[in-house]
Simulated scan of single mutants.
Amino acid sequence: MVRPAKLLLALMMALLLAVRPAMAIPQLLIDMQSGEVLYEQQAGQPWHPASLTKLMTAYLAFEAVARGRLSLSSPVTMSRNALKAPPSKMGFPVDTALTLEDALYILIVKSANDVATAIAETVGGTEENFVAEMNRAASRLGLTGTHFSNANGLHDPDQYTTARDMALLALTIRAQYPQYDDMFATRVLRFGKSRLESQNDLLTGYAGATGMKTGYVCSSGLNIVATADRRGRSLMAVVFGGSSGRERGEMAASLLDRGFSGQLRGTGRLITNLGNTGGQPTDMRPYLCGSEAADYVAERKRDFPFGLEGQPSYLDDDIAPREVRVSILGRLRDIPLPRKRPYYAAPIQILPAVVTVEAGGGVPLPRPRPNR
């Protein structure tokens, strides 16, 4: 039985779509099991990814672990270069280390730019090497409308993607590395006495939500890749250019809701068959951080009022957040050096840890020490 609130939402959405022209910002809904596009609008339009960039950063870290180059317990150490990144950041002092696993949780949940750079340096040796690998991976995965300039998503005019490409990357992560699903489903990190919270409102407001990532810079607006499972179906919504966190979350939830309810039945096309348009990425800065911002945001509220005070919301479920505690390993390079050893003219032979006594003894002796 359809709840009256959900029926009202469906009627309001139908009226908005009938009265107003299509919204200008990219939107995409994918069936994750078949790869079918259930709905798309400007999905091939170039756009600045903001922190959705960190999906590729995470992907390459997962790949490094899979290939045995790193493990989840490998240390990620903060460099001076990483610390220079502007907020959002953790601000750990130079030489502070944490495990790759905890660094990935901070990357995905807190979206810390300094930690993203530190992961890039750990995986690639330098951030420059890592960015080159990001672009090679984008080419390998068929992300034909994507180019990366950094590992954290801070604005660069030459860093761009499309909703189609981000959906394809997210689908690849889910398919190849399902063991990391819990990272994307985590809403809260506990670090010491601090509580670090994801900006993905679906994780606590939309039943069945499973992740993935949000992002924002002035030139991109508020972006999201959001996934959810309901009644045996798995769907993914991508929204670029939201004017607020409210609009971003409500719009993603509305796409998912209409997909699960059958209102969006599909286009018959696969995500891999969607094309990218090329051209220059849209710059949302004038509309969100410039002189036109007040008028634009007011217009967006009129066009998409869901979630505003007194209006119905797609994010009306009450879900306990998944929480994970993270910590640091310490400042590795500040560990005192061992006391100076005596100098030996010849190298010391490395002996087995246990030496067996002569016949009849049977008790292992300590390893012989060098003569001093």
Rank of each mutant, 00 (worst) to 15 (best):
G278H: 14
G360P: 05
T282A: 11
M78C: 13
R341G: 03
M90S: 07
P86R: 15
I173T: 02
F260C: 09
R265W: 04
K54D: 02
S254M: 11
L38S: 01
L255H: 03
A116N: 02
M90E: 09
D295V: 02
P281Y: 10
A170I: 00
N276D: 12
S261I: 12
S198D: 09
N81H: 15
R372W: 06
S219Y: 00
L308H: 11
V94N: 10
T57W: 03
V65C: 02
G360Q: 06
V2Y: 00
D257R: 04
Q42T: 06
T172I: 00
R325V: 10
H155E: 03
F92S: 02
M13W: 13
R300C: 09
Y206I: 00
D318T: 12
E133S: 15
V354G: 02
R187H: 13
E121Y: 14
L107E: 09
T267N: 03
D229T: 01
A61R: 02
P312Q: 10
R136W: 15
D114A: 11
F62K: 04
G362R: 03
F62G: 02
L107R: 02
A226T: 06
T122L: 12
F191D: 08
M78R: 09
L351K: 07
P347Q: 14
L337Q: 14
K6Y: 07
R331M: 09
D102M: 13
F304K: 10
R265T: 05
L143G: 10
T227V: 01
L351E: 09
L351H: 06
S234L: 00
T272Y: 02
K84R: 15
R300Y: 09
T210V: 08
R331P: 07
I350S: 11
Y59S: 01
K340Q: 08
Q42W: 03
P93D: 15
A82R: 10
L329I: 07
L222Q: 03
Q311V: 14
S111E: 02
M183V: 11
S313K: 08
P178V: 05
S88Q: 01
Q27W: 00
G310R: 08
G307V: 11
S327V: 02
L72S: 06
T162K: 01
T162V: 05
M23Q: 13
A298C: 04
N276I: 09
R300S: 04
S234H: 08
L107W: 04
K84P: 09
T214C: 06
L235W: 00
M212I: 12
D181M: 07
E127P: 15
A138K: 10
M284A: 11
F130A: 11
P86I: 11
L315N: 05
L169Y: 06
T267W: 02
N200W: 03
T96W: 07
S243H: 10
G330S: 08
L202C: 03
L168P: 05
Q45V: 00
R339W: 08
R69H: 08
A66S: 12
M284H: 06
T204K: 10
R300D: 07
I224Y: 06
G266L: 05
R302M: 14
S243Y: 09
T172Y: 00
T57Y: 01
R258D: 00
R248Q: 07
S219M: 01
E250T: 08
A5G: 04
V109M: 09
P338K: 10
A82N: 11
T122K: 13
D257M: 02
E127S: 14
L189H: 08
M236A: 04
D317Q: 04
G249I: 06
V115G: 03
S79N: 14
L168T: 00
K340G: 04
S73A: 15
A353N: 12
